[in-house]
Simulated assay, not measured.
Amino acid sequence: MSEPFLRVLFPGQARVCGRTLPPLTLWRLACLQAIRSPFLSLDAEEATFTLADLLLAIRAVRTPNQTPPNLRPRIRDVFTLLRFRKSRTYRENHGTRFLDWLALHQLRPELWQNEDAEARCISAPLILTQVAGLMDCGMSHADAWDTAPGYSSWLITSHAERQSDRIQFVSDDDDEIARAIEEQELRSEAEILAQAKLDLPPEAFERWVSARQKKTL
């Protein structure tokens, strides 16, 4: 299995500002969007937010599935603000931890690009598209909303791959495939095939040859 998929499947547990964060789901991601959380557009290295923003985001992602987020500060939040509002180190450390948690739950599969395929723009909201895709895979409406964003992408793409030969995941072995492709312009076709066969495991070599033939058609 690929490392990104395993990290999505087993994200571990995170604690931010003393609160244990549950798994991120499509519903909780929608709650962050509903409150226009600045964390959805922040880079971990260039984050600008307040401690109040962070505590509000934590409350949003601890919302149960299909329940509106409770935005009212709790007593614990008030104490945290009073104690750490002037501590830039506390705010930045826990903010970065929250951003890392968000990113980990949204790792998506990397796919081989088909240059001949025409991209079709989706007009529906991304989260709703993922919910619809999961329901098309057989999930209930409630279960779809309770799925992690990254994992939902893996499920939807895996389902789509079963229906189309135009979709192909990039695997752990494909770093070698990419290196072989980068060198192809410097060698003849026979040299490229011979070197790739030496460098790649049999299954990876067959995938590479198949992808190369499709690309040259």
Results as ranks from 00 to 15, higher is better:
residue 65 N to L: 11
residue 61 V to M: 05
residue 120 R to Q: 14
residue 89 T to I: 13
residue 120 R to H: 09
residue 184 Q to K: 11
residue 121 C to N: 11
residue 24 L to W: 07
residue 57 A to K: 06
residue 88 R to L: 08
residue 180 A to D: 03
residue 36 R to D: 15
residue 55 L to P: 03
residue 203 E to D: 11
residue 12 G to Q: 02
residue 207 R to T: 00
residue 133 G to V: 05
residue 67 T to C: 08
residue 144 A to F: 06
residue 121 C to Q: 12
residue 176 E to F: 14
residue 213 Q to S: 09
residue 136 D to F: 05
residue 210 S to F: 09
residue 141 H to F: 15
residue 72 R to D: 07
residue 164 S to F: 02
residue 4 P to A: 01
residue 51 L to I: 06
residue 153 S to R: 13
residue 188 S to R: 00
residue 130 Q to R: 15
residue 97 R to D: 05
residue 27 W to M: 01
residue 66 Q to K: 14
residue 79 F to N: 12
residue 167 I to V: 03
residue 63 T to A: 04
residue 169 F to T: 03
residue 114 N to K: 15
residue 30 A to E: 13
residue 178 A to T: 15
residue 93 N to E: 14
residue 1 M to F: 11
residue 54 L to D: 08
residue 127 I to P: 00
residue 191 E to Q: 10
residue 212 R to H: 05
residue 191 E to C: 14
residue 113 Q to G: 06
residue 116 D to C: 10
residue 45 E to Q: 10
residue 50 T to D: 07
residue 86 K to R: 07
residue 5 F to S: 12
residue 124 A to F: 11
residue 136 D to H: 13
residue 113 Q to V: 12
residue 195 Q to G: 12
residue 194 A to K: 11
residue 14 A to L: 10
residue 140 S to Y: 01
residue 59 R to P: 02
residue 88 R to V: 13
residue 38 P to Y: 01
residue 107 L to G: 07
residue 65 N to Y: 06
residue 17 C to A: 04
residue 193 L to Q: 13
residue 121 C to Y: 13
residue 165 D to A: 15
residue 91 R to Y: 00
residue 14 A to M: 08
residue 190 A to H: 15
residue 97 R to S: 11
residue 56 L to T: 02
residue 107 L to F: 08
residue 30 A to W: 02
residue 177 I to V: 01
residue 106 Q to K: 08
residue 48 T to L: 14
residue 112 W to A: 00
residue 167 I to E: 04
residue 39 F to R: 01
residue 20 T to Y: 03
residue 39 F to I: 00
residue 215 K to R: 10
residue 146 D to T: 05
residue 156 I to L: 05
residue 183 E to Y: 08
residue 216 T to M: 09
residue 212 R to S: 08
residue 57 A to D: 01
residue 203 E to L: 15
residue 91 R to C: 01
residue 8 V to S: 14
residue 143 D to T: 06
residue 77 D to K: 00
residue 185 E to C: 15
residue 214 K to H: 09
residue 145 W to F: 05
residue 29 L to G: 04
residue 147 T to R: 04
residue 37 S to N: 06
residue 38 P to E: 06
residue 66 Q to T: 05
residue 175 D to N: 14
residue 74 R to Q: 12
residue 120 R to M: 04
residue 47 A to H: 05
residue 63 T to K: 06
residue 70 N to S: 10
residue 131 V to W: 00
residue 39 F to M: 04
residue 94 H to R: 09
residue 202 P to Y: 05
residue 48 T to R: 15
residue 177 I to E: 12
residue 98 F to P: 00
